[in-house]
């Protein structure tokens, strides 16, 4: 990746972090730990890897992104706003009555929200259906699904995993946010997922690992997935919950808690310091 491109994607990731903190603090509710950890993944997807056009949101050949762990939607909304799907000011309507930016995503393709999510373990199934549709259409469009590690405790995730492999859906890429945190603690303590990569391999998937907070590592894995000809690809993205805000990092408390005004000020300060250095 060119240095200039890498720096741009990093910059966008930190801008998304600023949006996330502002949105959740303004809403006085919502999740910011997960979204902060996913900033690089969404920067790469929306500003590097995916073929999409905010001016033509219904373009049939667009790559699709189905967010399965709906509670991290602040990062999706921020990425969509910065891509031009809707004005950035609208981000402050997050979680408010009448908003298009619901507490968990409500499908609205015109602003880039491809599916409703909230109840976990459904996004991968919908993505399998979309990948089958792309194949029926003889289209080259790709289907991306973002899911969480904790979400892989849902049995339905593995129903979909089986089907994606059974149908050799090489047009499907799953990015798993592996921050090892779920609402009540560390995933490894709540319900062990390891050996995680081995599980996906055993289900017939091409499995890649990426440093999820490193834009280059994420982008390389996504490019590698595009070369796979017969299997779906799972990219296990090792991320840090709350990345970029020192007091939130890897602390399960910040899975689903909004920062108060003082915490938000400190978080935004840390983020802007970082942005200045980029």
């Amino acid at each position: 990746m060119q240095e200039k491109r890498r720096r741009r994607l990093e910059r966008i990731a930190w801008e998304l972090r600023g949006d996330i903190v502002a949105m959740v603090a303004n809403a006085k509710s919502g999740h910011c730990g997960g979204p902060l950890g996913l900033a690089e993944v969404f920067s790469v997807l929306y500003f590097h890897s995916m073929r999409h056009d905010a001016k033509k949101p219904l373009w049939r050949e667009r790559d699709r992104l189905y967010l399965s762990n709906g509670h991290v939607c602040a990062v999706l909304y921020a990425a969509l706003a910065r891509s031009g799907y809707f004005p950035p000011e609208e981000l402050l309507s997050f979680r408010k009555l009448g908003s298009r930016l619901q507490g968990h995503p409500h499908r609205n393709e015109r602003i880039g929200i491809e599916t409703t999510a909230g109840m976990l373990g459904q996004g991968l199934s919908v993505s399998v259906g979309a990948a089958l549709a792309a194949r029926l259409d003889k289209s080259k469009r790709r289907v991306y699904c973002v899911a969480s590690d904790g979400e892989c405790q849902e049995g339905s995730t593995w129903e979909a995993a089986m089907a994606a492999s059974n149908y050799n859906l090489s047009n499907l890429t799953l990015l798993i946010d592996y921050n090892n945190v779920q609402i009540s603690g560390h995933v490894s303590e709540v319900m062990r997922l390891e050996p995680f990569a081995a599980k996906w391999k055993a289900f017939g998937w091409n499995v890649l690992e990426a440093r999820g907070n490193d834009v280059e590592s994420v982008a390389q894995a996504i490019e590698k997935a595009k070369l796979e000809k017969s299997r779906p690809t799972a990219i296990i993205c090792r991320t840090t919950l709350g990345k970029g805000v020192s007091f939130m990092e890897d602390n399960p408390e910040w899975h689903g808690k909004p920062p108060d005004a003082e915490q938000a000020r400190r978080a935004l300060e840390e983020i802007s310091e970082r942005l200045e250095k980029l």
Partner: peptide, 26 residues
């Protein structure tokens, strides 16, 4: 046969896959 999809004994995925196909116009 090309427009028939077996989900196996996995009804949540049966419905989820159907939703994905529907969102893309099938």
């Amino acid at each position: 046969p090309k427009r028939f999809f077996e989900a196996g004994v996995a009804e949540m995925n049966l419905v989820g896959m159907a939703a994905g196909l529907a969102l893309d116009g099938y």
